[in-house]
Design a protein around this nucleic acid. Structure first.
Length: 390
DNA sequence: CAAATACACTGGGATTCAAA
DNA sequence: TTTGAATCCCAGTGTATTTG
């Protein structure tokens, strides 16, 4: 169904015939998915696990995580956590390609991924058996449990649409909420091919409105005020604040004291203030960036998304946070649109070129805390012995 | 009844990207 | 370059159903 055409000059979204079209589209999707599942079920008696599975792939639970990494048990090998790397994604694609050849089925991973068990709640029903077998098949060669693989497939193949909402999508959003709010999230996710989480957030905004955001101009006295309050509310000394995660209650107190949303304060703390206070040396930003490039070149990362920024902080002196590194590196990619898909070395070349062809080389501002006040440390130009940045 | 497992929903940090 | 809004997505929680 071509929604662009249907909705191109529709203003009145209350028109019931529009929702009828939505229902037809949804029904088409249901039928397509169900047909594909039926096809898989027809081959169920030939589906047997013939390969070795690590212990963590034997759990039958796909939709919620029931296995945990048993850190203490050294006999059991561990599975990977955090996001899937490029290599893992390729492995899944390869496994799927093998699957459709071996079982002679059409390439309809999306139908598999978005199918939901709506009627029969029996975990050992043929549908569920098929779902588990296919997931196990896709998990071959991966250090992941079944839940992780299934979630990955659902996310990347079931709801592949990303990015900002188009006008047509916004209209569909309004139509679905107007006619059937109860099922709107479910329906929209299916209709738009989008992750439901984003739709829930939109919904929340419809009900609660956007939070008001006030501008905050950071100055030394303001930063001092913030720091003193942070120490007071967390009952920590300055040194104890380093890399500390604070309870939400602490942030909420700060929110009311500073009259500013705590998420914003949080960001300012870890992105800037934390680094400025705890890094105790003269750092030139471009040197820092070049060091990141060197580290990434020596890493096994293949594409940008593989980068695990938290791990990078190990290579840097005390005080740096991963969000700071990320922020200072990524700002060089502004205007570059294809960096997510390009091989990492190519992206790094681009960044290096950008660093080398611009004149400014800013220093990191660092601060010292004395007698209850923050003060700026000034580094004299051309003094050697300060920078230990390799 | 407890355990296992499904779907629906939520919290909140991480990431992306366009506008200031 | 920086900022802020929007989105992405891991890791949970709540509740219903089925099995043993």
């Amino acid at each position: 169904m071509d929604w662009n055409e249907i909705l191109s000059d529709v203003e009145d979204i209350n028109d019931p015939t529009l929702y009828e079209k939505v229902l037809i589209a949804l029904d088409d999707i249901y039928c397509e998915d169900e047909d594909f599942m039926q096809l898989l079920i027809s081959k169920l008696d030939t589906m047997h696990v013939t390969w070795d599975q690590p212990w963590y792939q034997t759990s039958l639970c796909l939709t919620r995580c029931t296995v945990t990494n048993y850190e203490d048990n050294e006999k059991l090998e561990k599975f990977r956590t955090t996001h899937f790397t490029n290599q893992e994604c390729e492995q899944i694609k390869e496994n799927w390609a093998n699957f459709i050849t071996e079982y002679d089925v059409p390439d309809m991973l999306q139908s598999f991924a978005r199918w939901k068990n709506r009627d029969c709640k029996n975990p050992s029903s043929p549908h569920e058996q098929v779902r588990r077998f296919v997931t196990a098949y896709l998990a071959q060669g991966l250090e992941r449990n079944m839940h992780q693989v299934y979630q990955y497939v659902v996310k990347h193949f079931g709801t592949p649409v990303k990015g900002n909402y188009s006008d047509v999508e916004k209209k569909l959003f309004n139509i679905c909420f107007y006619f059937n709010e109860k099922d709107a999230v479910k329906n929209l996710s299916l209709l738009l091919g989008r992750n439901p989480r984003g739709i829930y957030k939109q919904l929340h905004q419809v009900h609660e409105g956007k939070p008001e955001r006030k501008k905050l101009k950071w100055t030394l006295p303001l930063a001092t005020k913030f720091l003193n309050l942070l120490m007071e509310h967390s009952q920590c000394s300055l040194e104890e604040l380093k890399y500390k995660k604070f309870d939400k209650s602490v942030w909420l107190k700060l929110e009311s004291d500073m009259d500013q949303q705590y998420q914003y304060l949080q960001k300012s703390w870890y992105n800037a203030l934390h680094v400025q206070i705890f890094v105790k040396q003269d750092v030139k930003i471009n040197r820092l960036r070049k060091k990141i490039i060197r580290i990434l070149r020596d890493s096994p990362y293949e594409v940008w998304r593989d980068i695990c920024w938290k791990d990078l902080t190990e290579h840097f002196p005390d005080g740096f946070t991963h969000t700071f590194l990320y922020k200072n590196f990524t700002c060089l990619l502004v205007g570059k649109t294809d960096y997510l898909k390009q091989p990492l070395p190519k992206v790094l070349d681009y960044i290096l070129h950008k660093i080398n062809t611009r004149r400014k080389n800013k220093r990191l501002r660092t601060l010292t805390y004395e007698n209850g006040n923050l003060e700026l440390i000034s580094y004299k130009k051309n003094t050697k012995n300060q920078s230990k940045e390799e």
